[in-house]
Design a protein around this nucleic acid. Structure first.
Lengths: 230, 230
DNA sequence: CGATGAATTGACCGATGTCAAGTGGCGTGG
DNA sequence: CCACGCCACTTGACATCGGTCAATTCATCG
């Protein structure tokens, strides 16, 4: 990826959008690059939160493991999206790990550098506030869903949420263009691989999806939508 | 409450802490006051988010009602604490209502005023980012608890969380100094009034708490702590 | 072509929610 | 000041979703 493509990418990111060219360039120049192979991790839960990332290639999942060993999948990240905002504050530790699903590259900023950028450029401060506020709304929605909706509804919702960001059109529907195991889905929706398997099979028999190991094609999003609101 | 007491209060709040006196005064001068009687609401879920509040008197609960009519109690607010940070961003609506539990007073800022203060004073921007980040961590913790812990564990955790902020010492233990119904606890922990009643009774039989309508005294916090981590 | 990780399927069970029918104390208003 | 009514809380019986465990099957990759 060329420098100008990277610059382009960060100018469209949630954190650096709306900046004039000089500021965007300044931000870009203060980053460095980092590659992580599939299965590796950009950051580890429990480590001091020191760096901010914008993914430029591959897919990352943010995973939290509870004291009891339960894993919670918080979010998927695709190129252009960021993770590790907390690093702009000092004294925090990573609440989760960022695992590379496939081979990944990312731009990295030290937390203090990001803090300086925020100090100098109000727009970045507001962008950060917006990112955090949206994340809050999202967590609240998931909390609410976990509390009030059935496993099938939550699974349908989760799959639908993946479509706009991770979907790509194929002949018989929309493919979720990312290696996605049933275990991932279980950790994402707060259930077990057994329930996911049963539900996915039921959907496949109904012609709503086609699920083959690590690949899901959604044939009929409308049917999923009607499951979420019965 | 006198002006200088109010100024003192906001200088200790999460959002306005760490400011020099001139800036704190500026912030204070741009606020106005508002009173809401017990049972009323400062803000309503679904309305445009236009104002930021710092409570100066009474107790507020933040409540979200789901499409299915389920109520979720997100947070209690006591004097000195803030709510409605989202109002600094334009175009959002309130994700929840802020209901006065008893008679309340609060300082209020228009969202745009807060946005201006953030623009001019980096410290307030960082304070806002910190508040949102902490709230995120908190939501994640609750999500995780909901997923992995039993009702009894969550209830114990919730009661323990209320102690430092809402507790006041009485002869036989620590009173949660706020009208707190079992329904509130149910909405806070994501369960039903029936389960709360059964568990509270069990605890009372074990001498851990004393629960009388809307009042709870915790006699043995250590016992609760051992419930949360079995 | 075998090994490894992913997915499937059935049997079982337990924690909690649901529903119904109470009890009891506090406060208001006559 | 008493009584009535409301609202918080209680208690039991019952239903059920979905988690757990164990045993397989399947598919992909080296």
């Amino acid at each position: 990826m060329t420098d100008s493509e990277l610059l382009q990418l960060i100018r469209q990111s949630q954190i650096f959008r709306g900046l004039d060219e000089a500021t965007a360039k300044e931000a870009f120049q203060r980053s460095h690059q980092r590659s992580i192979a599939a299965g590796g991790a950009f950051i580890h839960q429990g480590d001091p939160a020191l760096v901010f990332h914008i993914l430029t290639q591959g897919h990352v999942k943010l995973v939290q493991v509870t004291p009891g060993g339960h894993e919670i999948l918080t979010r998927f990240v695709k190129p252009g999206q960021e993770f590790g905002v907390i690093s702009v504050l000092s004294g925090f530790e990573n609440a989760m790990s960022a695992q590379a699903i496939d081979d990944c590259r990312a731009l990295v900023w030290a937390g203090e550098v990001m803090a300086q950028l925020i100090e100098r450029h109000t727009r970045i401060a507001f962008n950060a506030i917006r990112v955090l506020a949206l994340r809050n709304l999202n967590m609240q929605r998931r909390y609410q869903e976990l509390l009030t909706e059935s496993v099938e509804q939550r699974l349908a919702q989760a799959v639908l949420n993946l479509l706009p960001t991770m979907g790509s059109e194929v002949d018989n529907g929309t493919l979720i263009d990312m290696p996605l195991t049933e275990e991932d889905l279980a950790e994402l929706t707060g259930t077990t691989i057994y329930s996911v398997s049963r539900i996915l099979n039921k959907w496949e028999r109904a012609g709503i999806v086609v699920a083959r190991r690590k690949r899901i094609v959604v044939c009929c999003p409308q049917a999923l939508r009607s499951i979420t609101t019965p």
